[in-house]
């Protein structure tokens, strides 16, 4: 299956591009994606899958899913 990945802010260092597609076997989880991107700091990170915050790494990926990866931030 194909997953669309988008990296934001400081997380952009984990990809050559900010937006790209990745391919996974059926049954792959978010952990597999993070492993593949070699993202080490996995605590202070926010991931949205199809607009929903993923709280656990064992969350399954699905074909066509949009995965947004960012560091938490704030503002006024």
């Amino acid at each position: 299956m194909k997953v669309n990945v988008c990296l934001f802010g400081p997380m952009q260092k984990y990809g050559d591009k900010d937006k790209f597609q990745m391919e996974f076997e059926e049954g792959a989880t978010l952990a597999n994606l993070l492993d593949r991107l070699k993202i080490e700091d996995r605590i202070y990170i926010v991931i949205l899958i199809n607009g929903r915050r993923a709280y656990d790494e064992d969350e399954p990926l699905s074909d066509g899913a949009e995965v947004l990866i960012m560091a938490p931030t704030g503002g006024g």
Binding site: D41, I43, Y44, I45, V46, R53, Y55, D56, P72, G74
Partner: peptide, 20 residues
């Protein structure tokens, strides 16, 4: 506080713990 879920991540980071 003003963002419980970010507090959770900051505390988890300092404790080296699963945020959950």
């Amino acid at each position: 506080g003003q963002h419980p879920y970010r507090d959770q991540l900051q505390v988890a980071r300092a404790l080296g713990m699963n945020p959950r």
